[in-house]
């Protein structure tokens, strides 16, 4: 019985070590998601112009990352998370396109775009002077509209590179394309934004 007891003890030690590792991994994942979630929801909201849907997309991305890729290295989480999120955004646009076609067929206009209330979707004040806040808000609205008007791939490349600060390699992983494509999309996006936003942005 001593052999069995020894094996049982080793198994218990393994389980305890495994539990400690899992707890540490969970804490790291929690920290990562906490760091990324706000920027992710803003990026998704700019892409689809719908705050509630953006929150759902971010939640789905969090769940998929936690379920499928939690055991990957921490440095892999950011590109993987944004890849899942960007796939969600693309699927959302596809579903939206189908829904719009159906609505047109039934002669019912989808008023979702018209109902988008920029004031209601505006972020709450964070202790800045009202005029400064208003100025920033208006500038951000202009920027959001300009970004939203970009082709999808340019929009993705711009937000991942400029807002999230991903390098070219991680952006390529997140977008599921080559690094050369990322550079091209990003460069075109910046030039296009400069044209759209006009001289007062330069």
């Amino acid at each position: 019985m001593s052999t069995a007891a020894a094996i049982f003890a080793v198994s218990c030690t393994d389980v305890r070590t495994s539990e400690a590792g899992t707890l540490q991994q969970e804490q790291e994942l929690n920290r990562f998601l906490q760091e990324v979630e706000k920027r992710a929801v803003r990026i998704a909201a700019i892409s689809i112009r719908d705050q509630d849907e953006a929150l759902d997309l971010v939640q789905n991305a969090m769940i998929k990352l936690a379920q499928k890729y939690a055991d990957r290295g921490i440095d892999e989480w950011t590109p993987l998370f944004y890849r899942i999120l960007q796939n969600g955004v693309r699927d959302w646009h596809r579903r939206q396109a189908v829904r719009n076609r159906v609505m047109v067929f039934f002669r019912r206009e989808s008023a979702e775009e018209d109902n988008y209330d920029a004031i209601a979707a505006a972020p709450d004040p964070a202790g800045r002077a009202p005029d400064e806040q208003l100025q920033n808000y208006e500038a951000m609205q202009t920027l959001e509209l300009a970004i939203h008007g970009l082709p999808a791939r340019q929009r993705e490349a711009f937000m991942l590179r400029a807002f999230e600060g991903l390098n070219v390699a991680d952006t390529a992983t997140a977008m599921g394309c080559g690094e050369g494509s990322v550079k091209t999309h990003y460069s075109r996006a910046v030039h296009s934004l400069r044209e759209r936003l006009g001289e007062h942005w330069q």
Binding site: E26, L29, N30, L33, Q34, E37, K38, R39, V41, R42, Q51, L55, V58, Q59, M62, I63, L65, A66, Q67, A70, P123, D124, P125, A126, Q133, N136, A139, M140, L143, A162, F163
Partner: peptide, 30 residues
């Protein structure tokens, strides 16, 4: 980037709360 960071810092409490719940849900599923 500066405007974007500003808008991230200004995310309202309701959205933050929803994000927190989403995170906890993801961790529970994991």
């Amino acid at each position: 980037k500066s405007l974007f960071d500003d808008s991230v810092d200004s995310i309202d409490a309701a959205t933050q709360s929803r994000l927190n719940r989403a995170r906890q849900k993801a961790l529970a599923k994991s």
